[in-house]
């Protein structure tokens, strides 16, 4: 089985979260998923550009989607919650409003592109459930993650707003649990499962976001989790790279390893932590994983 997607990596995969680029490509290769990276994709706007110019935000994402449409694929895939939200928001706005679509296309014509609306925007998590299938994923598992206690941290932008995202019930999603359990891991229940990481306001609301980071790490720690797993590189960066800063505001030890969803999948597929670039995290995740997964 080969599934082919147009691939939108997003800016963070080229620098701070390069380990997500590495692990996504490794996992896709083992699963037989073909990812064709868009040539000339731009930043999605990261939920900021619409604060300056909403039409521009829609236009640059219309261009990104139009690049995917030119590849003749049916889906554009991302591994970032916010990229997914930004692309889907632009698409929904244009698909619902013919006038807006025409207006955007006047601009796109100057770039030699046209937004048609033929490509769906999805996230790897959804694609695994919807296109690849959990049964097929289970067949690929070489090292069941038996005994590994994971805390699934969804991140807001893969769930909300539901009229844009809508893959599952935003108040009680189960997709992460379904994938983690298919890999053999044990999912812990914890209060902050659907919490906000705060990343998008980490500059103007630094103090508040550091408090949130501390709570987001403590909650799964107290629930007995070995690590947090997230489908979003921005949540990962907030919870991992800022964790030493957040620690300063807490007396208790908040140490909690944070890994990307494709890294968790990769471990179960028998790929080593180094090949999945798990050694690039600020909070060392490898000891916790080694204690629980024998093949690691």
């Amino acid at each position: 089985m080969t599934l082919t997607y147009a691939f939108f990596p997003g800016c963070t995969l080229e620098s701070a979260a390069e380990e997500l680029m590495i692990s996504t490509k490794k996992v896709a290769a083992v699963l037989g998923i073909e990812l064709i990276e868009l040539d000339g994709w731009t930043c999605c706007g990261a939920s900021h550009i619409q604060d300056i110019d909403g039409f521009l935000s829609t236009s640059i994402n219309a261009r990104n989607i139009a690049l995917a449409e030119e590849l003749g694929v049916s889906k554009l895939i991302t591994v970032c919650n916010t990229c997914t939200l930004m692309l889907r928001t632009a698409k929904l706005k244009m698909d619902k409003n013919e006038n807006l679509k025409e207006k955007v296309n006047v601009g796109l014509e100057r770039t030699g592109l046209e937004y048609k609306g033929t490509v769906e925007v999805t996230h790897l998590l959804w694609a695994l459930l919807e296109d690849y299938g959990l049964e097929n994923l289970k067949k690929k598992v070489k090292v069941p993650l038996k005994g590994l206690k994971v805390a699934n941290f969804y991140g807001c932008h893969i769930l909300m707003p539901p009229d844009v995202m809508g893959f599952e019930n935003h108040r009680n999603p189960q997709s992460m649990e379904m994938v983690a359990e298919a890999l053999g891991a044990e999912c812990v229940e914890f209060d902050q499962r659907l919490a906000c990481c705060g990343f998008h306001a980490v500059f103007p609301a630094q103090k508040e976001v550091m408090t949130m980071t501390g709570i987001n790490c403590l909650s799964p720690k107290e629930a007995g989790a070995d690590c947090i797993v997230t489908p979003c590189p921005l949540c990962q960066m907030q919870l991992d790279a800022y964790q030493p800063d957040a620690q300063k505001g807490f007396d208790q030890d908040i140490t909690m390893p944070i890994i990307h969803l494709p890294q968790l999948i990769g471990l179960a597929l028998g790929i080593s932590p180094e090949e999945l670039a798990i050694d690039r995290h600020v909070v060392d995740a490898i000891p916790a994983l080694q204690r629980k997964i024998q093949a690691v």
């Binding site: 939920s47 939200l85 909300m160 707003p161 998008h200 508040e208 976001v209």
Partner: peptide, 11 residues
């Protein structure tokens, strides 16, 4: 500017 863009209110 401290709105976190979490989308809870609108959802």
């Amino acid at each position: 500017w401290k709105c976190l863009h979490c989308m809870q209110c609108v959802s």
